[in-house]
Design a protein around this nucleic acid. Structure first.
Lengths: 183, 183
DNA sequence: ACGCCATATAGGACTTGTCCTATATTCGGG
DNA sequence: CCCGAATATAGGACAAGTCCTATATGGCGT
């Protein structure tokens, strides 16, 4: 349901085409909301059918025509309603934890290898987020608050990556010298 | 795809019915892998059709019959393959971050209210995890390593909840006294 | 010269998960 | 005495997302 709201959120900043929307996602929101290209276009079609946005075709020579989507009042209203609605409880899935949960048959050494894999991935994510933050942040909006919030989502990713690494390291040392497990 | 692996993981510890599987999920894995009851049974059917498990019907007087599922060799093999496969990159969705990203139109006060809502939810999650950890942990397995890993998934949840709270508090104070935003 | 990438949109097939309902019985609370 | 919860399994309808392919052209590298 939320891809629609994201689409409305972007369109509320300025009219965009599906292609630009895809770019916007991948450069600013990919780390917390990956958007499939097909799903994006379908969502745009549906939003238009529902009267939340409308589109104008911009003809181009030697390039496929662009469809520029603009948000309509019902779209703005839907966006505002979503922003004001109570937060739904988190039900995210964590494939890594699932794997760890059942990893006992790998033995201690195997589990440690798993933790190390995960640690590398977390480090990689950290550097990705750092470079995203360092590179000229694409200014989606002129509003200072919007820019601040955009940056905050990056900070969130970094905070969680750090927490993940710390947790991994603690677990690893717990498994490496199992003295304290015997309580 | 992974619910299947979770089912195999549980069935590898001991033969279980769909109902018991549901209980096992909700008491030990719900915080990182919610399992819908319907989906569970469907997954069991499919696993049996694929020859990964088999079932025997246990007749009961005055209760619906139970179908006890046992893992077969191909199931164990599939589980082992999954455990040994390379970690796929994380592509989890974070509805809260999406919302925050587009929340500028709420104004500073509105955003702070959003952060406070989120903070309460994180605190609540923490206490839930604490009580889960405190309550006699259902021993799924006799293996010490398995118990340790089961506990570690709870620790992970706590670590991330703490990180979330810290991040929220920092963001909140940044929004409250905006001196350092003017760099 | 050839292939790949960027631009731009779109549909089909499929998987996974969610929500709701159905069925049947027993036990405990108010 | 009635209502709901626990035990136990299952199907239908639907929503959302993933992956692959199609279409069309211009530019860049090798």
């Amino acid at each position: 349901m939320s891809l629609l709201h994201a689409v409305l959120g972007f369109a509320a900043i300025q009219p965009m085409t599906g292609y630009e929307l895809g770019k916007a996602f991948s450069t600013t929101a990919a780390h917390f909301w990956p958007a499939d290209q097909s799903q994006l276009y379908r969502t745009l079609h549906r939003a238009e059918a529902d009267g939340l946005v409308d589109s104008t075709t911009v003809e181009q020579a030697s390039r496929p025509d662009r469809r520029l989507y603009s948000i309509l009042e019902p779209g703005r209203a839907a966006l505002a309603t979503w922003l004001a609605s109570p937060l739904e409880p988190d039900t995210s899935r964590e494939p890594f934890l699932l794997r760890l949960f059942f990893a006992a048959s790998l033995g201690t050494a195997g589990v440690i290898a798993l933790l190390d894999q995960r640690r590398s991935a977390a480090i990689e994510l950290l550097t990705t987020l750092d470079s995203l933050a360092a590179s000229a942040p694409p200014k989606l909006s002129k509003k200072a608050l919007a820019t601040q919030l955009q940056y905050a989502t990056l900070e969130s990713g970094r905070a969680h990556a750090h927490a993940e690494i710390t947790w991994l390291d603690e677990l690893r040392s717990q498994l490496t010298n199992p003295k304290e497990s015997a309580q």
